[in-house]
Design a protein around this nucleic acid. Sequence first.
RNA 1: GUGACUGUGGCUCAAUGGUAGAGUAUCUGGUUGUGGCCCAGAAGGUUGCGGGUUCGAGCCCCGUCAGUCACCCCA
Length: 422
Amino acid sequence: MPKYKTLAGMKDVLFDDQKYWRYILAKIQETTDLFGYQRIDTPLLEQASLFVRGVGEGTDIVEKEMYIFEDRDGDMLALRPEFTAGIMRAYVQNGLHTMPAPLRVWTTGPLFRHERKQAHRYRQHSQFDIEVLGEQDPAVDVEVINVAWHLFSSLGFSSLRLYINSTGCPTCKPVYIEKLVDYFTQFKDQLPSDDQRRLQQNPLRILDTKEQATIPLLDNAPHITDYLCEACDNHFQKLTTYLDVLERPYTIDYRIVRGLDYYTKTVFEIKADGLGSQDTICGGGRYDGLIEQVGGRATPGIGFGSGIERIAAALAHLNIEPPAPPKPRVMVSYLGAEAKLAALKLVETLHAANIGAMLTPGDRSFKAQLKAANRAKVSFSIIMGDDEVANQQATVRDMENSQQTQIAWSEIVSWLQEQLAK
RNA sequence: GUGACUGUGGCUCAAUGGUAGAGUAUCUGGUUGUGGCCCAGAAGGUUGCGGGUUCGAGCCCCGUCAGUCACCCCA
């Protein structure tokens, strides 16, 4: 047994997974360039209070999932559990409100939440995240959804489900919550204990219940869309109109309730098949009050986070094979100490000419060296031995058809460039 | 945080309570400088860890850790 193992919920990303990551990150780069988003990176560590304030005191993330600790200076720090609060901090601190609005940014990197581990749910996971700051037009809401949709389409997804809802604003949300509490209070005695608790602590979460006893009651429960204030209702109407014009398929799901306190108006999720109960690969929404909470001037914002591990798992489930990463097509083998020196120099020369090449190290038998070349699936093996050194030549073996050619050292680069271009 | 299932070489899995094995991967050979196929050999394990029951535990019991499933939460 190994002495050291990854911590619970942590994971090594090995080579078979890396091909998905490489593919996903390349598509993220293309998509964000296409839509005009600029990259921003913020630190993994921030003052703990930033997240407590930003994400919300009563949320699960803050209450029981944050990695929080005192550092050597006695400050309370936290590993970021999400991106948005840190980006808002950066927006205020760097005076980014002086840049042309709306400000479109994206980022990617690891996030940390101490959750009960499960497949597709990790304590360290990575997300692709975008935020648009300084504009409340619902056209921006649609744009943000479109960034996600374009990314997923370009990755090869064809069957994702988009769910949208509105969570209202500080004007209408409390009114709705009151109606909701009134409604469920009638049935209080029928509610399972979990839902009775929710009724007290976070009534919106009842909408998300999995309790068999509660689900029938949801049918007649008040929908938030009937209680939105004029501004929120108008916003939501426009959002659906714009989505309809774009013929973007969506489902209005009044049960979407995001776990972070800061959301206002638009919220949305995108779900994939094959990931069990952890099937949300993208979730986000509007947060028009957040920047003010973090100490900036009132600024509207909207964004989403999308889990890279889950995107990769969904691609694998759908048998979507990422393109193979480029790799060296030349292996240099040698026989004898003198030829080894020539081989070392040749590999260096090939790299300088931007030709991917590897040496078979270890002074192994020639047979073993060719075997290694075979397994590396290179196109050419270059063989250096005493004869070659004496003649200032190399033997180049075409691994496909086993043809061998003698090439002068001075010609190797141009010869290979010509062959590899075919 | 709640409930349940699983844990044997790197990987996939065997082994009635009685000597821990196979396939695969790795390394080396099958005469002198030639890969893929085939053959042979080597190496690789305190059966996740700690207790208990037993003459004897990979197997039974308890605990713990890890993974998995559902809840919860969320990406």
